[in-house]
Design a protein around this nucleic acid. Structure first.
Length: 285
DNA sequence: ATGGTAGGTCTCCTA
């Protein structure tokens, strides 16, 4: 039998080990960067100023081998799981924490680099998505791209239905603003691709199939919330005609650990910006 | 009702 003092210290160590095991908070951000090579300085600025543990990028528009990993590694981000192609699409997960490549899927058979998954050492899987934008006309009979977007979402839905995810986070540019307060004008955008009832229903089916919790809206349930402002506006900030296209979802087993969601609107005003702002969430896991 | 900007690539596609 150990002396009372020793026993107390041993319990203290066990308590510390236990609490550390339970509370290992990590912060995650998702950002459509619109060319990771052109905007490598902006990525560096975000990593330097905000220091998320994990940064998921979309629209890298670069083959994986041309992503400037060494500049990011110098800031402590030595781990990369990515898929790329020349000129279009491309998704990357950049991390301070070790990652295991957990594969990718080619939904709707497009042959595009629009999904990649990685697993953290705590067993959490991160899915990074770039859902097709869907073209201009919300009618698959006259616009093939709109059909591809709906097919992409349907195949995501079917996958989550057949293989229900657990301990998972899904982020990315989903190219749909589902709620009325996710767009600057619900009424004016009802026939605009990204906010049509058909797309909102498709996204809802995909979310429901995986029992995904919208972590951003769990944290910020009220009010207008945007993550994208068009380049075409004369003054994006004053006009504020935004949409919430970028999302952070989590499975119910870990969604309760998510908190401190925010959108870094300021990044939309940086020099030569992306048209998207980064979305953040922290998970105590 | 219209056109407005941006990036990559190779002259126009995509967002």
């Amino acid at each position: 039998m150990a002396a009372p003092g020793l026993r107390r210290r041993a319990l203290g160590a066990r308590f510390r080990a236990l609490t550390q095991e339970i509370f290992m908070p990590f912060t995650l951000a998702t950002w459509n960067i619109n060319s990771v090579r052109l905007r490598a300085p902006l990525v560096e600025r975000l990593l330097g100023e905000e220091a998320p543990d994990v940064l998921c990028l979309q629209e890298c528009k670069s083959p994986v081998e041309k992503i400037p990993l060494e500049t990011f590694r110098a800031l402590g981000y030595g781990h990369l799981v990515a898929r790329g192609q020349k000129g279009y699409n491309g998704v990357a997960i950049l991390s301070k924490l070790p990652l295991r490549d957990a594969g990718d899927r080619d939904f709707a058979g497009l042959g595009h680099a629009r999904h990649v998954a990685a697993e953290l050492e705590n067993g959490v899987t991160i899915h990074n998505f770039y859902v097709p934008a869907g073209g201009d006309v919300p009618d698959r009979e006259v616009n093939e791209k709109f059909g591809q977007k709906l097919d992409y979402l349907a195949e995501m839905r079917d996958w989550f239905r057949s293989d229900r995810p657990g301990k998972s986070i899904l982020v990315g540019d989903l190219n749909i603003a589902p709620r009325e307060d996710d767009v600057w004008s619900h009424k004016k955008l009802l026939k605009v691709v990204s906010h049509t009832p058909q797309e909102v229903a498709a996204l809802g089916d995909t979310q429901e199939a995986g029992h995904w919790v919208d972590v951003t809206r769990k944290d910020i349930p009220e009010g207008q919330l945007y993550s994208w402002w068009s380049y075409r506006a004369r003054d994006w900030d004053a006009a504020d005609k935004g949409r919430r296209l970028d999302h952070v979802w989590a499975t119910p087993d870990i969604a309760g650990a998510g908190h401190s969601s925010r959108i870094l609107r300021a990044a939309r005003g940086w020099e030569k910006p992306s048209d998207h702002a980064p979305v953040f969430a922290t998970f105590d896991l």
